[in-house]
């Protein structure tokens, strides 16, 4: 697999760095709006990703990393919310120790996610790459991989005469 070379911090425009940082920071505001239903943050991330991914590979990578990591976080929090609501409304289920352990687990996961997101936002603002476990390399592969269509497009001019 072939990859585009990584740009160094001094090669990245300030605007790009800000947009890349925004992918992580935007999530905090969205989380606050979305509570107690942790879905707004995911929707916001998807929108942010599709708006910004074409701007540059550096932005694409950070937006995608922020989006991919939000999927498991959102799923973990949704399980907690659905489980909690089920306990509240149903006569069948009880708040067991396993449930409370899961709530603690979800809270710690979210907290850790916030911490690494802040670090990632800071690194992005400096024009640096920052890879999350599993999701970082995955996002890198998608954002920096050289696709066969890329070379085809480069050979074929975009503006053509009418006849």
């Amino acid at each position: 697999m072939e990859f585009y070379p990584l740009q160094q911090p001094d090669e990245i425009a300030e605007r790009e760095k800000e947009d890349a940082m925004g992918a992580y920071l935007m999530m905090f505001a969205a989380v606050a709006i979305g509570l107690p239903l942790p879905i707004i943050n995911l929707i916001a991330s998807i929108i942010y990703y599709f708006i910004n991914r074409k701007k540059s590979r550096f932005i694409h990578f950070h937006c995608l990393q922020a989006l991919l990591t939000q999927i498991p976080t959102t799923v973990i929090n949704w399980v907690a919310v659905i489980w909690g609501v089920t306990i509240l409304v149903s006569d069948q289920y009880e708040a067991t120790e396993i449930f409370w352990a899961y709530v603690v687990f979800a809270a710690v996961c979210t907290f850790l996610y916030f911490i690494v997101s802040i670090v990632a936002a800071y690194k992005a603002r400096q024009g640096k790459m920052y890879y999350f476990l599993v999701f970082g390399p995955w996002a890198y592969q998608i954002a920096y991989r050289v696709r066969p269509t890329d070379t085809m497009q480069s050979n074929e001019p975009l503006n053509k005469p009418p006849f």
Binding site: E97, I98, W100, F105, L133, V134
Partner: peptide, 20 residues
């Protein structure tokens, strides 16, 4: 990396259970 992530997750859950 996936194994590391799963181990961290399992450790967090076990920690939560212990705390409760």
């Amino acid at each position: 990396d996936i194994l590391v992530l799963l181990t961290i997750g399992a450790a967090l859950f076990a920690g939560g259970y212990f705390l409760v």
